[in-house]
Computed example of a mutant assay.
Amino acid sequence: MMSRKQILITNDDGFESEGLMALVEALKPLGHVSVVAPTTEKSACGHSLTLTRPLNFVEVEKDFYKLDDGTPTDCVFLALNKVFMKEKRPDIVISGINIGANMGEDITYSGTASAAMEAVLQGIPGIAISQVYKDKGESIKEFGYELAQKSIVTLVEKIFANEFPLPPRKFLNINIPPVPTSECNGFKVTRAGNRLYTHHAEVHHNPRGKEYYWIGLPALGWMETQGHITDFEAINDGYVSITPVHLDMTSYDDIKSLDAWL
């Protein structure tokens, strides 16, 4: 008799996130689910490990832990010590369902994506899944996570029936369009688009007159692209975007020109 698949779930929105709960609910029928998630929201923390202080596991319920002030990367890294052992590693790590998009260069900021990065660095298949929203989150209130749940179940079932579709040190970054399930046009394999970034920040003063800054949320703007469809275009057209991401950041096209420049 085959043992049940081991699924590790984390996120960057914190252990009480509705998106996390929706992901757990969707995947429980597919295997044994363990959760290690940050205590508080860690959005845009990137692929950061906590090295300057100790971290504590707090058991919320059976097979569900919050990592006190840990990052998503901490959660994956330490779960392999606390929850799993060398002879019992997870078959897959899934990070999400993030509340908001993780497309284009935002992948480099994303704690959601970074948990999947850590998984593949540890030799475990990794998936990051994010629910794009519009109207300041009103689309999530209207449509919920049904499409995200259905999409991740379809993909994980396919992986478990066959194999992970990428070689080592590569993960899947999935973004779900803000549409009802009935209006989704299916899956689209994409490349990461190019965001148009601003540096918006608000300056305020506390009651004692001390100045402080609060980084704002940039508008979801994108450069026009040619050739292979991007994640942004797929979402805009009502498709679930699946982007293969690799951790080798070498710009191979520039090696020869850089040699010549030197």
Results as ranks from 00 to 15, higher is better:
Arg53Met: 07
Val153Glu: 07
Phe160Trp: 12
Arg89Pro: 02
Ile97His: 05
Met249Trp: 04
Met117Pro: 03
Ala101His: 10
Met85Arg: 06
Val35Lys: 03
Pro29His: 15
Ala22Lys: 07
Tyr212Asp: 05
Phe187Glu: 06
Leu49Gln: 10
Pro244Val: 08
Val132Cys: 07
Glu183Trp: 09
Lys136Tyr: 14
Val24Phe: 01
Arg53Asn: 00
Gly209Arg: 07
Arg4Phe: 09
Ile107Asp: 03
Phe64His: 08
Ala219Ser: 04
Gly70Asn: 07
Pro165Asp: 08
Asp237Ser: 09
Ala113Gln: 05
Arg191Val: 14
Gln226Phe: 10
Ala128Lys: 01
Phe171Val: 11
Met21Trp: 02
Ser241Ala: 15
Ile127Ala: 05
Lys141Ser: 14
Gly126Lys: 11
Ile94Val: 15
Val245Phe: 02
Ser130Ala: 15
Gly227Ala: 03
Leu147Ser: 01
Gly227Pro: 01
Ser34Glu: 09
Ile215Met: 08
Tyr252Pro: 00
Ala113Gly: 08
Asn173Pro: 01
Tyr109Ala: 03
Pro167Gln: 08
Arg53Gly: 01
Ser43Tyr: 06
Val179Lys: 01
Glu183Thr: 01
Ser257Val: 14
Ser130Phe: 05
Ile94Gln: 08
Ile235Leu: 11
Leu49Val: 14
Asp91Trp: 08
Ala192Met: 13
Glu41Asp: 13
Val156Ile: 13
Leu147Val: 00
Asn102Val: 13
Ala219Pro: 00
Gly31Trp: 12
Ile176Asn: 03
His205Cys: 01
Gly96Arg: 06
Arg195Val: 10
Arg169Glu: 08
Ser257Gly: 00
Gly227Trp: 04
Lys170Met: 14
Gly209Thr: 05
Tyr252Trp: 03
His200Arg: 03
Glu211Ser: 07
Gly14Lys: 10
Glu25Gln: 12
Pro167Trp: 09
Asn236Leu: 03
Met21Pro: 00
Thr112Val: 14
Val179Asn: 00
Ala22Leu: 11
Ile107Glu: 05
Asp106Trp: 03
His47Gly: 12
Lys158Leu: 11
Lys134Leu: 13
Lys42Gly: 04
Thr39Lys: 07
Gly193Pro: 08
Arg4Asn: 12
Leu166Val: 07
Ile174Cys: 05
